[in-house]
Nucleic acid binder design. Sequence first.
DNA 1: AACAATAGTTAGACCTACTAACAAGCATCG
DNA 2: CGATGCTTGTTAGTAGGTCTAACTATTGTT
Lengths: 258, 258
Amino acid sequence: MPCRVVQAIAAPVVLRQRRARLREAALTEIRSIARRLLVKEGSAAVTINAVAREMGVSGPALYRYYSSQRELIDALTSDFFRELIAAMRAAADHPAADTPGRRLLAISRALRSWANSHPAEFAWLFASRVPTSRIAQCSPDENNSGRAFCQVFLDQVVEIWETQRFPLPSLEDMDPSLAVQLHAYSEKIDGLLPPEAAYIFLTCWTRLYGLLCMEVLNQISFAYSDLEPVYEECLQELCRLLDIPYEPPRQAVDLAAE
Amino acid sequence: MPCRVVQAIAAPVVLRQRRARLREAALTEIRSIARRLLVKEGSAAVTINAVAREMGVSGPALYRYYSSQRELIDALTSDFFRELIAAMRAAADHPAADTPGRRLLAISRALRSWANSHPAEFAWLFASRVPTSRIAQCSPDENNSGRAFCQVFLDQVVEIWETQRFPLPSLEDMDPSLAVQLHAYSEKIDGLLPPEAAYIFLTCWTRLYGLLCMEVLNQISFAYSDLEPVYEECLQELCRLLDIPYEPPRQAVDLAAE
DNA sequence: AACAATAGTTAGACCTACTAACAAGCATCG
DNA sequence: CGATGCTTGTTAGTAGGTCTAACTATTGTT
């Protein structure tokens, strides 16, 4: 009899969770298949129908999980962003990254490393930004993902700034419009960096990310076959800007161990 | 009778040209409609059927002109490349651009100016590089367009190098792999620049183009609303690298006059 | 056991690219 | 001038895509 009561109370909860669990599993399986299709056959192969076929289920069934292809694509995009951010955070949390400067280098290398080991996914992140239609241009969600993504980098620059400072350019020498924008951005990040330091941060980010953009979009392949040393030169330059010591990357063996 | 003879000989030529002219007109009309669709409704709207509808002609008729959508897209891409390169060349040919340094600045500004006045087209040029499917990744034609495009910039750096020289980094301080790649690239451009100078050129190009990449792909909009002064700061940096005097851009009024 | 929510099905509307077969027009040749 | 052949258009149809509607079966709750 007590057993019966337990069932009557507990079973519904368990079963409700079971449904939720199954649903969750289906959602992740869909994304996982979509990702496999992207990697194996390119972004054009990521279609609702192809995923359904691969799942052994018929087309419209997927609409129970993602109500449109756009939604699936956005979910995939945000997966990749999360994974990339996690990889960068993991690099920063590595015990060998015991100073803000080392963390910054580790994060930067983790960024490129993820980009190179997941070229399809990284290119996908760009494709999500390039406006395919006028309306979907400024989706606020993607903008947030993008900011969260560069936030990891920003955090380290803030810490470097707070603990050690670095040389600043003078706002007076700049174009007034640039100064205004830097003030606005400094406010946007809650004054964590003064406008001049924000400029240095943005310069660093732009250099690094711009280089990566060109690499992943095949815009520089006519000159460089391997961008790793170029990237390292860029990191040296960043270290000069941020007044932190440059340290060459650890051996691949060490990196694999983490 | 002579008139008849003239007709008999001349008419076929004229008529053959007429056909070719009509065909040419149809080809350009197709591309023009496709471009209008791109600008107005985004890249996804550039479909064979949509263009045909817009032309008042039924679908498969277009296949007489472009045998596949890919071909039309490639033609459009190469149009944009040509137009952009022409804009850069025109800036270099302007009478006010009377030194290699001024030409370089003019070209750089023309590049960004075109990118900003034709955002859809410029983004399209990137999309053409991002691999949608594994196979079409390394189309040699696109690579050539890309190189021809940065060639305009390279030409000016070569001229600056030949006439005035600029300070060079030492190859010995670089990663050996980087030195090897620079040697290879120096040979690829027929030794117009020694490896060290090629590095400076590539650094300049990367900075400039990387910034533009980020702008057009909305990767930096979270911080800057107007990239013009940032771009100008970047140009100042390039001038320092190339040891040429920086000159601020002429007024918009002057620019409109050219 | 009855009811409701969930997850699947098929049919179909409406796109897309692209091919095949056919009809009309235009240029050329006898 | 008339016949021939190339060029350009047409329609019909295949195959695939997104997505909706209507229906069924399973599952969870009452």
